[in-house]
Simulated scan of single mutants.
Amino acid sequence: MLNFILQRSAQAVVVLLLMSVLVFVAVYAIGNPVDILINPQADQTMRDETIARYGLDKSVAQQYLLFLKNALAGDFGTSFVYDSPALGLIFSCLPATLELALVAMLLSICIGVPLGLYAGYRPDGWSAKLIMGGTVLGFSVPAFWMGLMLILVFAVQLGWLPSGGRGETVAWLGAEWSVLTLDGWRHLLLPASSLALFRLALIVRLVRAGVREAIMADYVKFARAKGVSPLRVMLRHVLPNIMVPLVTVLGLELGTMIAFAVVTETIFSWPGTGKLVIDSIRTLDQPVVVAYLLLVVFMFIVINMVVDILYSMLDPRIRLGGRK
């Protein structure tokens, strides 16, 4: 296990270095922030001072080497717009995105796994066909349209839930969390439901396919022949054997929700990292964009490592970092 973690850590360093080059060059090639930072009516002296202050007078290679040197010390640059550390800005918005993604994933798992088990165990029933038809809807409906429909029905028509914002928050571990208050949950349910729809459909189909494959195995037939109840068969024999592919998808989808919840956060005015990055792209706030993309790369590396470790815990036949 230790050998595996060391190998993956070394790979992570190489991946981060390569991605930092690609991200830095790509982001710094999309436009010149000077056109936004400096008033068009400013004189040349003021323009030169501003360009020199942000280091934009250097070549891209020199800017990257300076960025890499500072990043190794934990400094990912200062935001052009907010005049504060880029990483600090991202971390200040990260709790909102984390709780939104985690609640959405929790909804997807708690609803999708039972529905997938049922649809896989009784595939010919009308309710199972209705469930699978609903997954087609989940895959087909765009996230922005679903968000607008949820607002129209539950916020405008029924008035049960607020249409946007984060609601009341409570400070914990140095960050503000809305999941710790009742008002925060009222604000969280609509965006989390909108974000969970696609993942819910994905989990239902994945679990159903796994159940249809596992239920034909000899160990399941033997358990049913012994008179084991269907619920016990599903929970003790079928579900553990479909967890490996399920954990893979859940891990990647959680990372995707954290990294790219931009549409949902924009529709529901949720103050997360997605909204921050969209605003930064509009204003060409390059340090914030670069820091965010590198943080996303690092997050996916960590998630993949955790998923691989969970493999060995779920299936003892899997060995990490060793030979067969």
Results as ranks from 00 to 15, higher is better:
residue 105 M to W: 04
residue 321 G to P: 01
residue 50 T to R: 02
residue 99 E to P: 05
residue 158 L to P: 05
residue 8 R to W: 02
residue 174 G to I: 14
residue 60 V to F: 06
residue 114 P to N: 04
residue 257 M to T: 10
residue 138 G to F: 08
residue 230 P to L: 06
residue 52 A to V: 00
residue 96 A to N: 10
residue 158 L to H: 08
residue 139 F to S: 10
residue 58 K to C: 01
residue 28 Y to H: 05
residue 97 T to C: 07
residue 117 L to Y: 06
residue 7 Q to E: 10
residue 169 T to S: 14
residue 186 R to V: 04
residue 193 S to H: 05
residue 116 G to M: 05
residue 50 T to S: 06
residue 183 D to R: 06
residue 269 S to V: 14
residue 191 P to M: 11
residue 284 L to R: 11
residue 96 A to Y: 08
residue 212 R to G: 03
residue 300 F to M: 14
residue 266 T to S: 10
residue 75 D to Y: 08
residue 147 G to Q: 08
residue 157 Q to N: 12
residue 155 A to L: 12
residue 127 S to W: 09
residue 256 T to R: 09
residue 212 R to M: 15
residue 315 D to V: 12
residue 33 P to L: 02
residue 288 V to E: 03
residue 310 L to S: 07
residue 188 L to K: 08
residue 251 G to L: 08
residue 180 L to C: 06
residue 226 K to R: 14
residue 14 V to S: 00
residue 61 A to M: 14
residue 170 V to R: 14
residue 101 A to K: 09
residue 26 A to C: 03
residue 105 M to P: 02
residue 230 P to G: 04
residue 217 A to S: 15
residue 301 I to K: 06
residue 135 T to D: 12
residue 191 P to N: 10
residue 202 L to Q: 15
residue 19 M to P: 00
residue 284 L to I: 06
residue 16 L to W: 02
residue 300 F to Y: 15
residue 229 S to C: 04
residue 277 V to A: 07
residue 69 K to N: 04
residue 221 K to P: 02
residue 63 Q to H: 04
residue 9 S to I: 15
residue 158 L to S: 07
residue 49 E to H: 00
residue 167 G to Y: 10
residue 90 I to G: 11
residue 89 L to T: 07
residue 120 G to V: 09
residue 186 R to Q: 13
residue 175 A to M: 11
residue 23 V to L: 04
residue 139 F to G: 09
residue 26 A to P: 00
residue 211 V to H: 07
residue 202 L to D: 13
residue 261 A to N: 10
residue 149 M to I: 15
residue 38 I to R: 00
residue 212 R to D: 11
residue 163 S to Y: 15
residue 83 D to W: 06
residue 204 V to M: 12
residue 181 T to P: 05
residue 30 I to T: 13
residue 105 M to A: 09
residue 14 V to K: 00
residue 235 L to N: 08
residue 262 V to K: 05
residue 249 V to T: 14
residue 109 I to P: 04
residue 3 N to D: 12
residue 114 P to H: 06
residue 55 G to T: 01
residue 215 I to G: 05
residue 309 I to E: 01
residue 116 G to A: 06
residue 178 S to W: 08
residue 161 L to E: 03
residue 310 L to W: 05
residue 89 L to F: 08
residue 124 D to E: 14
residue 50 T to G: 00
residue 272 G to R: 11
residue 236 R to S: 13
residue 174 G to T: 12
residue 253 E to Y: 10
residue 230 P to A: 07
residue 47 R to C: 00
residue 35 D to L: 13
residue 289 V to A: 02
residue 227 G to Y: 13
residue 295 L to A: 08
residue 267 I to M: 10
residue 21 V to C: 03
residue 315 D to C: 10
residue 171 A to I: 14
residue 17 L to H: 00
residue 163 S to D: 13
residue 62 Q to W: 05
residue 260 F to G: 08
residue 181 T to V: 05
residue 141 V to W: 01
residue 297 V to Q: 05
residue 319 R to A: 06
residue 249 V to Q: 13
residue 129 K to V: 04
residue 277 V to K: 04
residue 110 C to E: 00
residue 53 R to L: 09
residue 235 L to A: 12
residue 209 A to Q: 14
residue 145 W to N: 07
residue 25 V to T: 09
residue 110 C to K: 00
residue 272 G to Q: 13
residue 206 L to K: 09
residue 16 L to K: 02
